[in-house]
């Protein structure tokens, strides 16, 4: 299972639409009363459906949203949330159909991008990483301000599909548009190491070091790359430089788990 697939459950909380004041239970209770008086009010059903989704009651959400769509076929937000509910209910085919209906009716690029991200999520769960990757890429292409999250989703999906070169290409395109973000560069670095593309990885880690951020962590990565390239002296010097960076930190900060673990790894490499 890809890392992306593991993220899906968390993404189910994704909501671009409003939630009202007050405790969710109370809101649902209030909406129950309102819907009892206005059983054909699609807006109320959509609101309650969203609340049910956030509360983890996807079955109730599904019922409300499906009813809302019948009452108000033009409310594509109901379609979007229905697809989410169907995904939680492990009905990927139905979810895909709902998402595609949403996409057919979406009128602006922002909504379409959102629909493609959801489609990518559904396809990931369906074991179709390549199609998922294309959906995420489409979302990236449609977004005026692309979000690094979507670049990473696309890259992870390509990687899951065995297309690591394409994954790196997607990350490089993302870096070209967004700048040398650590989250994108780190992922590309990991994939390059996995592909044993050490020279490329070395250039990348040097670019990251130029930001002068996270120096001990990045120097350790550089040392590991140099070691893989059998440039042992440079590797040792780089590890030593990483240790010096740690030594320069305030005493309490040195004791964070991440830095203690890093220090242990560096000392092991030095010996």
């Amino acid at each position: 299972m890809s890392r992306r697939t593991l993220l899906i459950a968390a993404l189910l909380g994704y909501s671009g639409f409003t939630l009202a004041h007050g405790d969710v239970h109370e809101r649902i209770h209030d909406l129950n009363r309102e819907i009892a008086h206005h059983p054909k009010n699609a807006d109320l059903l959509i609101k309650r459906g969203q609340l049910f989704l956030d509360e983890g009651h996807a079955d109730h959400a599904h019922d409300d949203l499906a009813k809302a769509i019948k009452l108000a076929p033009g409310r594509i937000d109901a379609l979007f949330h229905l697809a989410r509910a169907q995904l939680v209910l492990k009905q990927p085919d139905a979810a895909l159909e709902s998402a595609r209906q949403f996409l057919r009716q979406a009128t602006n690029n922002a909504a379409k991008a959102r629909g493609h991200v959801l489609t990518g999520d559904i396809l990931s769960v369906s074991g179709k990483p390549l199609a998922a990757a294309e959906a995420y890429l489409t979302a990236v292409r449609l977004s005026k301000d692309i979000k690094p999250d979507h670049v990473l989703y696309a890259a992870d999906a390509f990687h899951s599909a065995g297309k690591t070169d394409k994954a790196i290409e997607v990350l490089n395109d993302g870096i070209a548009r967004l700048g040398p973000l650590h989250v994108l560069s780190e992922r590309a670095l990991t994939l390059e190491m996995e592909q044993q593309r050490y020279e490329s990885a070395l250039r990348r880690v040097d670019q990251m070091l130029a930001t002068h951020q996270r120096m001990p962590f990045l120097l350790y990565k550089k040392g590991m790359i140099l070691k893989a390239l059998a440039r042992m002296d440079e590797s040792k010097r780089t590890f030593a430089a990483a240790l010096e960076e740690i030594d320069g930190l305030p005493e309490a900060r040195k004791q964070t788990p991440a830095l203690e673990s890093l220090r242990t790894s560096l000392l092991a490499e030095m010996n």
Binding site: G16, T18, A110, K147
Partner: peptide
């Protein structure tokens, strides 16, 4: 705020 804004597309 998110009722009329979308983080995915920053719109």
């Amino acid at each position: 705020d998110g009722a009329s804004a979308d983080s995915g597309t920053e719109t």
